[in-house]
Design a protein around this nucleic acid. Sequence first.
DNA 1: CCAAAACGTGGTAGTGACTACCATTCAGGT
DNA 2: ACCTGAATGGTAGTCACTACCACGTTTTGG
Lengths: 202, 202
Amino acid sequence: MPEQPSTLRARRRTETQRLIQAHAVRLFTERGYDATAVTDVAEAAGVSPMTVYRHFPTKEDLVLAGQEARLVAERIAASPAGRPLVRRIGLALVEAATESTGSGEGLTADGRFLLARLRLMITTPALRARHLDNQYALQQAIVTALDDGGDGHDAFRAQAATGACLAALHTALVRWAEDDGRTALPGLITEAFAAAFGGQAP
Amino acid sequence: MPEQPSTLRARRRTETQRLIQAHAVRLFTERGYDATAVTDVAEAAGVSPMTVYRHFPTKEDLVLAGQEARLVAERIAASPAGRPLVRRIGLALVEAATESTGSGEGLTADGRFLLARLRLMITTPALRARHLDNQYALQQAIVTALDDGGDGHDAFRAQAATGACLAALHTALVRWAEDDGRTALPGLITEAFAAAFGGQAP
DNA sequence: CCAAAACGTGGTAGTGACTACCATTCAGGT
DNA sequence: ACCTGAATGGTAGTCACTACCACGTTTTGG
């Protein structure tokens, strides 16, 4: 999904980003987030501190950066309307999770990296706060995407339902990370939805 | 509810806290959060920057400090068990909101201050992130408080349900702030729960 | 009632995240 | 080949926050 303009500059750019982020997550995991300075990350990646800030506006973005959110929003917007909102969102989330992590046992390299990032997001207070705010931004994006021209009251109901769905997702993600990714994520999401919404989930 | 030990030192201490926080919220509202330095708050309150940090460990706490969370957790723990979790939490939240803001029209001075803080929490990214993390901490407190000795699976379901409830609460709070407190908060919470959970809300 | 302990407050000097502002180098399109 | 623009690096500065220490006042215990 990330387009590859294949121009040399763009390829190098994404490659540097990948390099910096990989070293950052590694160092944060080894030494701790607060005990690792941005300068350390830059040094490990072989670039100047300036370059780190060019690619990642804040230290937190070194862990949080990722494009999973966009995928989710698009999938929900593309899902067939008519069904109750909670079921639409739940189904889209389960599908997106299946695609990202696989429903079976083996974890891809991307999956392991996502897991490492998630662990940091859950345990480090500053990262957890920013991650929750990102989820809130995703909520806004979802509500905007599926706004069928209803009035403010409809939008309010959509906000409430979407927020509750994303909270259930978050619970599933936390459990998945605590389990080191051994339990399949789609199943956890389904369980979380069942616990929160009872009869109106896949 | 906050005990008054009535010893001179304690009274002075809470008074300085109140003073600093009041000036902070005022300045943040007038000039903006990022454009206001902690030094400015200290100067306005007539204390040294050091004293500000003594009472409020971070700049964000100047807005976020408050003991509403504890009230909510206690109320939920005290609610009668047996009913479905979502209904228990919803009822407790509506009651707590009624007590804090009143169900009628007039807004108390405390209510107006709470509204000003809430507006800052919603509009300022850094504060919004920390606020969402505080809600997440409240979720943990609630789950711990009503842990009836179930297994890990029960705890997982409680996490999912509680998180969804607090997301609905947050939606109601945002709407309340956007309305400048004109719509009664308990009713908004009830509506948000109805939108998210359908038939299982007050 | 008077000491000693505890607390609230202020100063100084630091660390670390982040932000201008500017110079240099090199890929991309014409 | 030339010029535009992007990517990187350096310097200096702001601001949140943290020791570490000193001084005065309130509280406490004999």
